[in-house]
């Protein structure tokens, strides 16, 4: 078994999860300059939407792949709707008015979501039904590659490229970048600000739901408290890469994934969180705005 390549592969898989979640932080930050601390828990909500859908009778007879796709689509829709409801009822009033208020409200929402899911589904971990992709492992040159490794890295890569394309090659994406530079000027140009804010939240929530479904499908288990630590590390990834910067979120996510794998594989697993947050401090000390820098749109 070639452990070095195995560790790199593992790092890329973990990193893809972090990158997908980091993209959500960065999208919202890029537009409203605020951190949505409930974002990590949207991953958990998506994972539970998916789990609940997979338990339904009418879906159980289907072959695994369409079953996962239906559950995944349901989770994306459900999680996006939740994000929209939260935005309209709680967040909109605070955006642009109170940075502290927004942070505290999203933090409260994070804990509330965890408690609600715990009340509905219980504190025990839930298990996704086994699937061929995650239970089959193929040996490629001494490296054990799981089918889901390829799905996770492939899907995450596609979504990231899609996001970059969206930001630079579509009207909505361009409007979002314009909004990131100057809210008032963008509004004067006739850009529908509240629509774009909603779009950013929906895109972030969709990516979170996809992450939740992928995580459940690959690792098999989901639990009500899976989101917070994941969210915190993904947030760290976004900051390391340069928050507000799509390429930075991807780079930061992969950096953290590889760090985690290498610490486990070569240093001391007991220290992995210490190393990750140590890296955050180091990066911010050397480059206060992250590796790629906090991107302002005109430099994009």
């Amino acid at each position: 078994m070639d452990t070095f390549i195995q560790v790199v592969l593992t790092g890329f898989t973990i990193g893809s999860f972090y990158a997908l979640v980091a993209l959500g932080y960065t999208m919202v930050y890029g537009i409203v300059r605020l951190i949505n601390f409930a974002h990590g828990d949207l991953v958990m909500v998506g994972a539970f939407f998916g789990w609940a859908l997979l338990q339904l009778d009418w879906i159980e007879g289907m072959p695994m792949l369409p079953r996962l796709i239906v559950a995944g689509a349901g989770a994306v829709v459900g999680t996006s709707l939740l994000a929209l409801v939260l935005l309209r009822t709680l967040y909109t009033r605070l955006i642009g008015r109170s940075t502290l208020g927004f942070m505290l409200v999203t933090l409260s929402v994070a804990f509330a979501l965890e408690e609600i899911v715990k009340l509905i589904f219980g504190a025990q971990q839930k298990y996704y039904p086994p699937n061929d992709l995650s239970s089959e492992t193929i040996d490629i040159g001494g490296v054990a590659v799981n089918g889901m490794d390829l799905v996770v890295i492939g899907l995450a890569g596609t979504l990231m490229v899609g996001m970059i394309w969206f930001a630079h090659r579509t009207i909505t994406g361009t409007a979002m970048r314009a909004l990131a530079v100057d809210h008032d000027a963008a509004r004067l140009m006739g850009i529908n600000v509240s629509f774009l804010i909603a779009a950013a939240f929906v895109i972030g929530a969709s990516l979170a739901a996809i992450t939740g479904i992928l995580s459940g499908t690959y690792y098999g288990r989901v639990s009500f408290d899976m989101g917070f630590a994941l969210g915190l590390k993904a947030f760290t990834a976004a900051v390391i890469g340069g928050i507000g910067n799509i390429g930075g979120a991807v780079l930061g996510g992969l950096t953290i994934g590889l760090l985690e794998a290498f610490v486990q594989g070569y240093l001391a697993g007991a220290w992995s969180d210490a190393v990750i947050f140590g890296a955050l401090i180091l990066v911010l000390y050397i480059r206060p705005s992250g590796i790629l820098g906090e991107r302002v749109a005109e430099r994009a």
């Binding site: 078994m1 452990t3 195995q6 560790v7 593992t10 790092g11 898989t13 973990i14 054990a144 995580s215 690792y219 408290d225 899976m226 630590a229 994941l230 985690e260 794998a261 290498f262 486990q264 594989g265 070569y266 001391a268 697993g269 007991a270 992995s272 969180d273």
Partner: peptide, 20 residues
């Protein structure tokens, strides 16, 4: 003689190190 961090989900790197 080492530890893992519960909640990380992916312990293949640590398992590989045990083999090495």
């Amino acid at each position: 003689d080492d530890a893992i961090q519960p909640g990380q989900n992916d312990y293949r790197a640590a398992l590989g190190r045990v083999a090495r």
